[in-house]
């Protein structure tokens, strides 16, 4: 049965778009919520799943704030990548589980975006074992990076460090989002989902919206390379 929206309904619907409401939400409401019900930041990166196919291709969105965010600091980061690019590519090739990887400067952040197969810890550990020295040169430019280099001597701490800077991946489906956010906080009350999500985004300024699109899902790098006859 349809019913016409009353003036009050229309007012409530329009409120979030008013400047006053947005000001109150940003400066009073969300900080008040966050202080009253602190939200633990979600771990970064993907979750392992029961289906093998779900665990094949994963995406890493590593955001690393530069110590020096000036053009000079950003230039140093660009130079660190350029000086080591051959070694980085050779290392990625030897790790054997990497589909794509690239470095990007976004404002004052050096970012590494990659698609890899299997478990995150194994990926990073293999990277350390293969081209740890390059990581050391790069991480030396990053805030809080000095504590985990040389990474060959801080393997566990380095993996944790990268994991903490790998973006939280917001679940692909709204139902999964609900399950993840409401499990501990608010049961299965759909009405509370927006608040939980807002608080999570308050705790994590950068997130990945979903785990990403895959052009050839459930195939590993080695399977693709084998099919193409380029060796694996």
């Amino acid at each position: 049965m349809e019913s016409e929206a009353t003036w009050f309904d229309r007012l409530v619907d329009a409120l979030p778009n008013t400047r006053l409401f947005q000001f109150i939400a940003e400066w009073i409401l969300v900080p008040y919520w966050a202080a009253r019900t602190p939200v633990k930041p979600q771990p970064g990166g993907p979750r392992m799943a029961p289906q093998p196919s779900e665990n094949l291709q994963h995406m890493m969105n590593l955001i690393m704030p530069l110590k020096d965010k000036s053009p000079i600091g950003r230039a140093k980061a660009a130079l660190a990548i350029a000086q080591n690019v051959d070694e980085i590519y050779a290392g990625l090739n030897n790790v054997g589980t990497v589909h794509f990887a690239r470095f990007v400067l976004v404002d004052g952040n050096l970012c590494m975006f990659s698609v890899y197969d299997g478990d995150f810890s194994n990926y990073i550990r293999d990277f350390i074992a293969t081209i740890g020295s390059v990581f050391n040169a790069i991480v030396a430019l990053i805030e809080d990076g000095d504590a985990v280099i040389p990474c060959e001597h801080h393997v566990e701490a380095f993996i944790d460090w990268v994991h903490a800077r790998d973006l939280y991946q917001v679940p692909d489906l709204a139902t999964d989002l609900l399950a993840q956010h409401n499990a501990a906080a608010s049961g299965d009350d759909l009405r509370l989902l927006p608040r939980d999500l807002i608080l999570q985004l308050h705790a994590n300024p950068n997130v990945s919206l979903g785990s990403g699109y895959r052009g050839y899902p459930a195939f590993s790098v080695a399977q693709i390379r084998q099919k193409l006859g380029v060796g694996w």
Binding site: P52, L56, G118, F219, S220, A222, Q223, W232
Partner: peptide, 10 residues
């Protein structure tokens, strides 16, 4: 997962 060899992956 069988990641170590493309013949068994998956």
């Amino acid at each position: 997962l069988g990641l170590q060899d493309p013949q068994i992956t998956g």
